[in-house]
C-alpha cells in the first residue's frame, strides 16, 4: 500500500437500502459509505447479497427502500445509463464480455460514451467519426499496455483462457476512465499466480488513476491485503464494517463464517 495515495471524502453513500424480490429479502436496511480513492471490499458468505448490492449501486436493480448518494446527489435509485455517465464502471461475476468481438473491440465498447458522432457519420467514416475512432483507439491502447493484453489484441474473446477474459473485462471497465470501479469477484476461479497478477492490476489502477474501487471477493487473504475498509454482509444484513483488522476480530463476522460457537 502506497502512502502517497490520499483517501479523500465520502463519494458514495448508501442509506437504509432494502431490496426484495417478491417475498425474498435480498438486502435489509444496508448503509455504508465509500471514500474517494479507497479500496472498499464487500464480503460475506454465498447468498449474502453482495452482488445485489453492486447491482443496486449501478442501477441494475431498484431497491424498494433507501437512498443512494453519489457525489452529493441523492437518488432513490440509479439508472444504469446514468451510473455509466457519472463514471461508475463494473465487471461481472460471470464474465460478461461480448464473445463475438475481438479484445480490441470489447475494450473499445468501454469508450462508447466518449463517442459523439452519429451512425450516419460513422457509415461514411468521415471527419469526426474517424477522428473519434482513432483518438479513442489511442486511449484503449494505453489500457492494453497497462493490463499487458498486447499479444491478444485482435483475438476473438471466445478463444481466450479464463484468466485473460477476466483481465479483458477489467480493461473494458477501465476504458471508460471511471471514477468508481465495481469489481464482482475479479479473482474467482483463478490460480495463485493469476490472483497475484490481478491484485497487482487492481492496486495499480487504484494507485495510478486514483480510481475508487468497490470489490467483492471470497479470498480472505486478498481482501485483507488490499482493501482499506471492509463491509460484511450475511443474509442481506450488514454485520460488520471497518478496517480489515477490526472486521477480522468482530465476533459476528467470525460467527457468520465459522458457525456458532
Amino acid at each position: 500500500m502506497t502512502d502517497a495515495r490520499k483517501i479523500g471524502d465520502v463519494i458514495l453513500k448508501v442509506d437504509n437500502i432494502s431490496l426484495r424480490f417478491g417475498g425474498v429479502k435480498a438486502l435489509t436496511d444496508i448503509s455504508f459509505d465509500v471514500r474517494e480513492h479507497e479500496i472498499r471490499a464487500i464480503i460475506g458468505p454465498n447468498g449474502a447479497g453482495k452482488s445485489s448490492m453492486l447491482n443496486v449501486i449501478n442501477g441494475v436493480y431498484t431497491p424498494q427502500e433507501g437512498t443512494i448518494t453519489f457525489h452529493g446527489e441523492v437518488r432513490q435509485d440509479m439508472d444504469t445509463h446514468q451510473a455509466a455517465e457519472n463514471g461508475i464502471a463494473r465487471t461481472f461475476q460471470n464474465i460478461a464480455l461480448f464473445t463475438g468481438m475481438t479484445v480490441l473491440d470489447n475494450i473499445m465498447t468501454g469508450r462508447n460514451l466518449k463517442i459523439k458522432s452519429t451512425f450516419i457519420e460513422q457509415a461514411f467514416w468521415f471527419g469526426r467519426a474517424r477522428r473519434e475512432e482513432i483518438e479513442n483507439r489511442k486511449k484503449v491502447e494505453e489500457i492494453i499496455d497497462f493490463l499487458q493484453l498486447q499479444s491478444v489484441r485482435k483475438t476473438p474473446v471466445a478463444r481466450l483462457p479464463y484468466g485473460i477474459k477476466k483481465r479483458v473485462e477489467l480493461a473494458r471497465a477501465l476504458a471508460a476512465e471511471p471514477t468508481m470501479l465495481l469489481l464482482d469477484e475479479p479473482m474467482a476461479g483463478m490460480n495463485v499466480e493469476e490472483k497475484q497478477d490481478m491484485c497487482r492490476f487492481v492496486l495499480d489502477t487504484n494507485d495510478q488513476f486514483g480510481t475508487t474501487i468497490v470489490l467483492i471477493e471470497h479470498d480472505m487473504g486478498v481482501v485483507m491485503d488490499i482493501s482499506d475498509r471492509v463491509v460484511v454482509l450475511d443474509y442481506g444484513k450488514k454485520i460488520g464494517d471497518g478496517t480489515p483488522n477490526e472486521v477480522r476480530n468482530n465476533p459476528d463476522v467470525i460467527k457468520a463464517y465459522l458457525g456458532a460457537h
Binding site: 463475438g100 473491440d105 473499445m108 465498447t109 468501454g110
Partner: peptide, 20 residues
C-alpha cells in the same frame, strides 16, 4: 465503428451493454 459495436454488444450480452 461504435454503432456496429453497440449492435454486437446488445447481441452478445445486453445487460453488460447497458451497464457500459
Amino acid at each position: 465503428s461504435t454503432v456496429g459495436r453497440s449492435w454486437m454488444a446488445v447481441r452478445d450480452m445486453d445487460v453488460a451493454a447497458e451497464v457500459i
